[in-house]
Design a protein around this nucleic acid. Structure first.
Length: 281
DNA sequence: CGGACAACCTGGTTGC
DNA sequence: TGCAACCAGGTTGTCC
């Protein structure tokens, strides 16, 4: 579920309410939420630590704890990280973990499909978290200039598959890869290495603008995604192609089509995103 | 290298 | 209404 805009929204909504809070204790309800630790040792390490900051890299949320520890969370498909100001009961279904704060409320990790994961590592040492360790450039950082994208895109693979590859660029998922390609007017199956310089520049602009607009809308709620306050996002109302199969394209009116690319459902406008495999361009 | 696919889970939707 | 098949925002691993 959550891609960069959703994770960034969770970060922004949690930061003001959890920074400065001390974790009194935590409880793990689904053991496999901790791929690298047992709940007993994890909870022991986390107890009595204070959260000093909330960061993000790609789709990873990183809670900085005092004494040089990082608590890293990946929400995968259906994970929700929600701050509850009061210790209310009953608990919703599918709670993977709870963190109780000394003074106020608790942080709940709710995850219907149970794919979400939590790690505890030494500050900035991500060598044990493969996906984070191998993560590509951060698209909203100042280092992400079009030439960085151009280098990442040099592949025979379909550009859609390249955009989903977190080692090439961090944070895009199925929704925003489709939206970005539509805005850039690029066919999702076109091999990345065949993109022209002007196409890469347009793609670069589209990535930055789509992500920023989605963040401004607090992300896209298809079903499960919630902000750190438990609210839905709004960008689902702005989607141009994702899950819009059979609806008219907002630019040209031609009906949106759905295909498979990179093993995922892919939505595009056959007029705005043309590519002829026989043509050299 | 890349592509296809299964696995990890639960639950909603679709079609018969 | 019942039930099976298929689908889902992500990532990892295996096999070819």
């Amino acid at each position: 579920m959550p891609e960069l805009p959703e994770v960034e929204t969770v970060r922004r909504t949690l930061e003001p309410v959890v920074v400065g809070q001390t974790i009194e204790r935590c409880e793990i309800y689904y053991e496999r939420v901790l791929p690298h630790a047992r709940s007993s040792e994890f909870c022991g390490s986390v107890a009595n630590r204070t959260i000093t900051g909330v960061g993000r890299r790609g789709k990873y949320l990183i809670f900085a704890l005092d004494r040089e520890l990082d608590l890293v969370v990946h929400l995968r498909m259906t994970g929700q990280l929600i701050y509850q100001p009061t210790r209310e009961l009953p608990l919703p279904k599918h709670v993977s973990a709870r963190f109780w704060f000394l003074d106020n409320g608790e942080l709940r990790f709710v995850d219907q499909r149970k794919f979400g994961t939590i790690y505890l590592v030494a500050r900035d040492d991500y060598s044990e978290i493969h996906g984070l360790y191998t993560l590509g450039p951060e698209p909203l950082s100042s280092e992400f200039i079009w030439k960085v994208l151009a280098a990442g895109v040099q592949s025979m693979r379909a550009i859609k598959a390249v955009l989903l590859d977190q080692t090439k660029i961090a944070g895009l998922g199925n929704i925003y890869a489709d939206e970005v390609l539509h805005r850039a007017g690029i066919h999702p199956l076109k091999p990345g290495c065949l993109l022209t310089e002007s196409e890469i520049k347009i793609l670069h602009k589209s990535i930055v603008s789509v992500l920023n607009e989605a963040i401004a809308c607090h992300g896209t709620t298809i079903r499960d995604y919630r902000t750190g306050s438990g609210d839905t996002g709004n960008f689902q109302n702005q989607l141009q192609v994702y899950r819009q199969t059979g609806k008219p394209c907002g630019k040209c009116g031609v009906l949106i089509e759905r295909i498979k690319a990179g093993g995922r459902s892919t939505h595009f406008c056959p007029r705005c995103q043309r590519w002829d495999p026989e043509c050299t361009d």
